[in-house]
Design a protein around this nucleic acid. Structure first.
Lengths: 223, 223
DNA sequence: TAGATTGTTAATCGATTAACAATC
DNA sequence: TAGATTGTTAATCGATTAACAATC
């Protein structure tokens, strides 16, 4: 209420807040009541300074001597992160990755609900989940009726741009994209791209570089 | 050869280099020969300045007037990114996500090869891929023999730390982790965490915030 | 009280961008 | 040549960290 700095928090910060929350839940379940900024920092691998700053951004106050009350923190984080609101999503593209994501989301949830999958060959898909798969032609209507705001794209590379446009047209405001094309956010929407091959390639590069610069590690054998 | 600044390039830069490469391949296949920094910038959504800086880091020179030679850029990028070296990986944990990743990597490759999957219940797994799945007890030996340096973790939450230790012990230097625990890199290794639920949650938050701050969008209905 | 921890400001750090001389 | 684009330096920007007074 005082500083009213509740503009859009940046993505890294939100990631950290989500991690704090996870850690705090664990601590709580272990019977802990209080926590210090350095505990939280250690837990998620950041400095205590940053923890305190993060918490101050969401208006959480600790006690100068007694640290932070875990239950207070959790409550505040749930509010800020909107943990209690329904999280409705749809998935487009029910090929291998699509189905895998459906299966994954079918049990790991965290409050996230995939209402439906869509595919141009909805009939011929062997669906091992309880989540219904409809034909893509139903998509726009469904999204509008259910007021879904978040969509997951798992279609092949060339179709991704098209699907993005359809989703935005239907009212989707946030997209998680698994297709190996960088989808760019135009106008009012937020797109996160996850590219598994790219992540692995990146890892190969980093490791190779680490080997070159640090010289050989304990085990011999690599040039 | 002149500035020898070939220390470890940071992760964002590598991601960009990988994107440049993809764009350049597309341009080349369309018959283009030259490209300017602003073209590349537009394509991956960064400023021309950054493109030029990125390219200078990998010692690529353009012509003051004629831009950059696409084939030269591609060649340089392939060298730097190690695109031609074999990319051997293993996957640990062949549950839903694990199998999904196996299937995905079974055809999308990009030069990445998953040599084997490992699971504590290797026998009872219905394996739809051509990639063999072995018992976890074989893992260490396999990794050492094949000199695998990159591992993918897709085991359930509680087992992840353990698996990480085993992998590092066996000589793995880079890990892509899909388990919903933040694995931290100790000593000589690099860990990237991908947490799908977390990404989606984050997206929900960002969208909610965008709605709040920007006021309602064109379509009415949301408070 | 003495000691420890917060809240917050100023310093640091790194990455991105703007700007512009060099030059094709 | 005139115009456009590079290569590179300096400025900017934002995020993280260090430091320290306030205080429980």
């Amino acid at each position: 209420m005082n500083n009213e700095a509740n503009h859009t928090l940046n993505s890294d910060l939100i990631m950290r807040l989500t991690r704090y929350r996870r850690v705090l839940h664990k601590l709580k379940s272990l019977g802990f009541v209080k926590v210090f900024s350095n505990n939280l920092g250690d837990a998620i691998g950041v400095t205590p300074s940053l923890v305190r700053k993060d918490l101050s951004v969401i208006n959480m106050q600790g006690n100068k001597r007694g640290g932070y009350q875990i239950s207070d923190l959790i409550a505040a984080l749930e509010t800020v992160l909107g943990s209690n609101e329904p999280k409705k999503t749809v998935l487009v593209g029910c090929g291998r990755i699509g189905i895998a994501i459906l299966e994954y989301m079918d049990d790991t949830q965290e409050g996230i609900e995939v209402l439906a999958g869509f595919d141009i060959h909805a009939d011929s898909i062997n669906n091992p989940t309880a989540i219904p798969i409809y034909d893509t032609s139903e998509m726009t209507r469904f999204i509008r009726e259910q007021e879904v705001k978040i969509g997951i794209i798992a279609v092949p590379d060339p179709a991704a741009e098209d699907v993005k446009d359809q989703l935005l047209e239907a009212g989707i405001e946030g997209i998680l994209n698994f297709a190996p094309v960088e989808l760019k956010c135009s106008r009012n929407c937020i797109i996160h791209n996850i590219n598994i091959s790219l992540e692995i390639e990146n890892l190969f590069y980093l490791v190779r570089m680490a080997d070159v610069t640090e010289g050989c590690l304990d085990c011999g054998g690599n040039e």
